[in-house]
């Protein structure tokens, strides 16, 4: 039942063959058009998989592109336009999620990972130095010694 429903929903979405940004949509004012393109690149096409409305050829994406342009022409700021779309579809449409509590782990995470990795590397070298100067560690085998050891180990196992 559900599989069938998903199929239908997919069909509902896959309508007419239109292509991303059509000439008829393009604004005459190049500055405004440039702003529209930038905004479109950051807005997710809600019926597609991880595509921006600027790249998508879905009809709903086209209508959203037109809406973005109409609002810009009407004098909205970039932020106003984005806020309007977010107020309709939620923050899901922002391809760059805003920094807030729910996304703190996402934004801070990579930095934490880098710092942790650096700390681990520093700890590795510290431990190595301690081991080397403390004399608790056996010195490394010479190549020749190791070869002989390998040969012995091998014989041992066969």
């Amino acid at each position: 039942m559900f599989r069938w429903l998903v199929l239908i929903l997919a069909l509902a979405v896959a309508d007419g063959p239109a292509m991303a940004v059509n000439p008829s949509e393009v604004l005459a004012d190049p500055l405004l058009e440039k702003r529209a393109r930038e905004i479109s690149k950051g807005l997710r096409c809600v019926v597609c998989q991880n595509q921006s409305i600027d790249d998508s050829d879905a009809t709903l994406a086209r209508d959203l592109r037109v809406l973005v342009r109409e609002r810009l022409v009407a004098g909205d700021s970039d932020q106003d336009v984005v806020d309007y779309v977010v107020s309709r579809y939620g923050e899901f449409v922002l391809l760059k999620p805003p920094f807030k509590f729910a996304t703190a782990v996402l934004w801070v995470g990579p930095a934490v990972i880098v710092l942790a990795a650096l700390a681990a590397m520093a700890a590795f070298f510290r431990r190595q130095r301690r081991g080397a100067t403390g004399g608790a560690r056996p010195t490394a085998l010479s190549d020749d010694e190791r070869r002989r050891l390998d040969a012995l180990m091998k014989d041992d196992r066969t």
Partner: peptide, 14 residues
């Protein structure tokens, strides 16, 4: 025809 109301309602599919 141009999704004016649909977008205002936050519609993704019919």
């Amino acid at each position: 025809p141009r999704s004016k109301a649909a977008i205002a309602f936050g519609v993704t599919g019919a």
